[in-house]
Design a protein around this nucleic acid. Structure first.
Lengths: 245, 245
DNA sequence: TATCAAAGATCGAGCGCTCGCTCAGTTTTT
DNA sequence: AAAAACTGAGCGAGCGCTCGATCTTTGATA
């Protein structure tokens, strides 16, 4: 199952063992419940419900339903009546958890941005001076992160621009941060003569869409039976072939 | 201005001269006026206004305003009152050109799909047995096409999924057609030992987002001062490096 | 352990508003 | 003057959001 079909050892000076999706998910708790618990902590002042377990349970239902309905036809065309009936809560109950529809959007966006920041900004110490394997780690971790939180990421990707300045800035900042991490690995690799890169920022910019395609076009890859691990291998070898000449 | 900074001649068996964006735009008329004229011809039965020049002029105003407003906050949150006042037409006049807001969406989507089909499905005869240059031609032409019709493509990309089955299918079909053209060039190149490709469909699938990023994230590249020609060179050398080993 | 009032949480009809869309009346073109 | 094209107030529907009424949970007391 984990056997790579292509022999790429010739282009891989040091091969770090590839993590599986499962291993990633055991390292980082990104369950809806956990994310909604953090959401509760972050929004105590707007959430009227006080008992933690009650609030978290309902936030899970609200979030799951919002992501499901929004990813079908967009956040804007999801009515709060739909959200109420699908989630099993009443209109009034919903407003115990947010003070406006926009706030609900920002709550979800905020957790996505936080998850990105937390997950990607702590690469293993051992990779500090190993740009090739740090790049691999970045690509792999990003794919696994977005695989685990797929509906969240699609939501953030599709809805961010349509809303308040605050929401847009949050999304842009988060995107640029990821690109900066890639660019840093490229620059590092260039300095160490591991990579050959013309324009570091431009190259980082075109690696980004390879990461985004995994969650934006998830159904395309599902239809073709491509697993997260396979996708990681595909883009990793694609990117490395382009960088090592 | 057109000088490439990297010396890549060693990886390019036959170098076809790169077209400029301007040359492309002289070859294909993709002006809003021309596209709206075709839109008029295709929708004579729903458009009540009969005089061609009057109709085309108003379709241009409607389309331009729709694309501008939709790309700001989404088609769904653009009200027809906004569209009326911004385009200078009245509510009633708008309904001389479409019978519902969804029809307006489909009219625009239809022109995008038609432009893709027409532009990409006629590569120069000379490239028929030259997969490397045909791939280059595909990448270049796609970037130039989407550069010329940028707001149209962003619209199609962002709005298609949120609407009727008809609209979604149109978008999916158009996407798959493009991917098939890429895959065909890859398969051809593999057969001729010009490319080394593991999984043709998967590789074609991950080349696609490189093309889409140009118009979806246009502002990012504008901010960085990347021209269409530069972007073509960047993704072309990136892709070729990954395919030729 | 059973009781019950206070506190916590939920309910959903109703408010004001904006939406997509229409059509009788008016203006412009032929 | 007939035909073509445009106008915009008005319709019903559905929206986000509110709030008094109601149900549920809690914990001090007997």
């Amino acid at each position: 199952m984990h056997v790579t079909h292509t022999n790429q050892s010739s282009r891989r000076p040091t091969v770090a063992p590839m993590r599986t999706l499962k291993a990633f998910q055991e390292e980082f708790d990104l369950s809806t419940k956990f994310l909604c618990a953090r959401m509760f902590d972050r929004h105590r002042e707007t959430i009227r419900t006080q008992k933690r377990h009650v609030a978290v349970g309902n936030l899970v239902r609200i979030t799951k339903t919002t992501l499901a309905l929004s990813n079908r036809t967009g956040f804007h065309s999801m009515s709060l009546r739909d959200l109420a009936s699908e989630s099993g809560l009443s209109m009034g109950a919903l407003y115990n958890y947010f003070d406006s529809k926009d706030t609900l959007l920002l709550m979800i966006l905020g957790e996505v941005a936080a998850a990105v920041k937390e997950t990607l900004s702590s690469p293993p110490q051992a990779l500090e001076h190993d740009p090739l394997n740090r790049l691999r780690w970045l690509l792999e971790t990003h794919v696994y992160l977005t695989e685990t939180m797929q509906p969240w990421f699609v939501f953030a990707y599709m809805e961010a621009k349509a809303f308040s300045r605050e929401g847009r800035e949050l999304a842009v900042r988060s995107e640029l941060a990821t690109e900066a991490l890639i660019a840093f690995a490229l620059a590092d690799g260039e300095a160490q003569s591991v990579f050959v890169v013309d324009d570091i920022d431009l190259t980082a910019a075109i690696i980004k869409p390879l990461l985004q395609d995994w969650y934006v076009k998830r159904s395309k890859y599902r239809r073709r039976g491509v697993s997260a691990e396979q996708y990681v291998r595909a883009i990793t070898s694609f990117v490395e072939a382009a960088l090592t000449r």
